[in-house]
Design a protein around this nucleic acid. Structure first.
Length: 201
DNA sequence: CAAACGATTTTCT
DNA sequence: GAAAATCGTTTGG
């Protein structure tokens, strides 16, 4: 059920971003199982993509995990508050990653509500990269851990997303990336309420 | 060693 | 719909 390492090591990050729609992200920290179906992703295409942290081959303590072999988590802090969860892809030396921007809650909803200080389930629980990371308990300390571990992994539960229901658009919050901001690297499930509002489709 | 900047969310008007 | 909050990472001196 768990996606095999070969899924992540493939070299087409855009294809992986698409394929992740409908897959299930699972975390099991401190014995608290939570899971959610991925409904929105963005591809970050390595050294040639101005929107990527690894653009131009930038190699810093933060971005280093992106250069490792695919199949691990890249988590980093944005705006000093939000933990953003990415999946590292491709083989060692190629810093490609997929940002997960929206998920639909499946298991452990009570745990997620508690982590987010919420009373009832609404789409704001897990719509948006910072929100879903908090709901699933993912923090920067989890950066670099394997997606084959028992604490954090992605599995296929057989949910199928019809090709016609996958919408491609431009990425959110990357206006500074100039011409690369126009790349159609954002993928969401049509009409799913857990897709972040970032901007219109 | 100091300064600027976000792959965002929340809250208030 | 707009603006503030907030701090680790990166970059320049």
């Amino acid at each position: 059920m768990k996606l095999p390492e070969s899924f992540y090591v493939a070299d087409d990050v855009v294809a992986i971003a698409r394929a992740l729609l409908g897959k299930v992200l699972v975390t099991a920290f401190n014995g608290e199982l939570t899971s959610a179906m991925i409904v929105e992703t963005e591809a970050y295409a390595g050294v040639t993509d101005r929107a990527s942290h690894a653009f131009g081959g930038r190699d810093t303590p933060r971005t280093r995990v992106m250069y490792r072999q695919g199949g691990i988590a890249y988590v980093y802090l944005c705006y000093g508050i939000h933990h953003l969860f990415n999946v590292v892809t491709n083989i060692e030396g190629f810093p490609y990653a997929v940002l997960v921007r929206g998920v639909e809650p499946l298991d452990g909803i009570d745990v997620m509500l508690h982590r987010r200080n919420k009373e009832k389930l609404t789409n704001t629980l897990t719509a948006g990269p910072g929100a879903l990371s908090e709901a699933l308990g993912i923090k920067t300390m989890h950066t670099g851990i394997s997606l084959q571990s028992e604490q954090l992994y992605i599995e296929d539960r057989g949910f199928k997303i019809a090709k016609a229901d996958i919408v491609a658009s431009t990425r959110v919050g990357v206006a500074y990336a100039r011409e690369d901001a126009l790349r159609p690297y954002r993928f969401c499930v049509r009409d799913n309420p857990y897709v972040s509002k970032g901007k219109g489709l």
